[in-house]
Simulated assay, not measured.
Amino acid sequence: MSTPTRRSLREQAAFDRESAGPTGAQVPSGAARRARRGIGRMLTDVLLWIAAIAGVVCMLLVVLALTVNITLIMFRTGSMSPTIPAGSVAVVQEVAASDIEVGDVVTVDRVGDLPVTHRVTSISPGASDAERVITMRGDANAGDDPYPYTVQTVRVVLFSVPGIASVIVAMGNPYVLGALTIAATALVVWAFWPRSSNSRHRATSEEHR
């Protein structure tokens, strides 16, 4: 059996000092620290990807709104239940009134009142080629709306997602937007903040040890 040299004893002592905490307790090994750092980086990457996807969706909605007149509407009442329950968000596209058919679910703007989104029950010609007079009814209602609507354009419901209207409303709250902005900024800063040279030196030493 070979006798330990002074150099090997000094290296062992230095290693023991690094492995012991301030009270002499054993601290996690380099592999454990690297594993924790790996989990932290993975969680950061996931959150960054979620933020990036959300940003892409927002930009896509803006592009669609400007190019093909696609927007979102929220359903506060259940007049279209069970097809579109209250609390749903629908994706709608503005089209000419001449393009709609009986059975379509459309949104009609009303002067001095909120828009109404119901199912078309009848279509009649209007005063011009582009104009139509339509009657509508909510799926949950027993009869047609009290009066017909004279329209040149409407917004056709393409599809709807139930239960997310409250999330959309919350996103418009300035306090929620401020908190999300601060959280996203902190996440990006933390993810790209340069690590100290001592930390990089210790990580390199552990990998070559």
Rank of each mutant, 00 (worst) to 15 (best):
S2E: 14
P4H: 06
T5W: 05
T5L: 08
S8N: 09
E11Q: 09
F15S: 14
G21L: 06
P22Q: 06
A25F: 05
V27M: 14
V27E: 12
V27T: 13
P28Y: 04
S29L: 11
R33K: 11
A35K: 11
R36N: 10
G38F: 06
T44L: 12
T44Y: 04
V46W: 09
L47H: 02
W49A: 15
I50C: 15
I50R: 14
G55M: 09
V56D: 10
V56K: 06
M59Q: 11
L61T: 07
L66A: 13
L72M: 11
L72F: 07
T77S: 01
G78H: 05
T83D: 12
P85F: 03
Q93P: 02
E94M: 10
V95R: 08
A96T: 15
V102G: 03
G103M: 05
D104N: 11
V105Q: 01
V106M: 03
G112W: 04
D113N: 10
D113M: 10
D113P: 02
P115W: 12
V116G: 02
R119Y: 01
G126H: 07
I134T: 03
R137L: 02
A140N: 13
A142V: 10
D144T: 10
V151I: 15
R155F: 13
R155C: 09
L158A: 09
P162H: 08
I164E: 00
I164K: 01
G172M: 10
P174I: 08
V176W: 13
A179N: 05
L180S: 13
L180Q: 07
T181E: 04
A183S: 09
A183D: 04
A184I: 11
T185Q: 03
T185V: 15
T185Y: 09
A186Y: 11
V188Q: 02
F192W: 07
W193L: 14
R195A: 14
S196Y: 02
T204P: 05
S205N: 08
R209K: 10
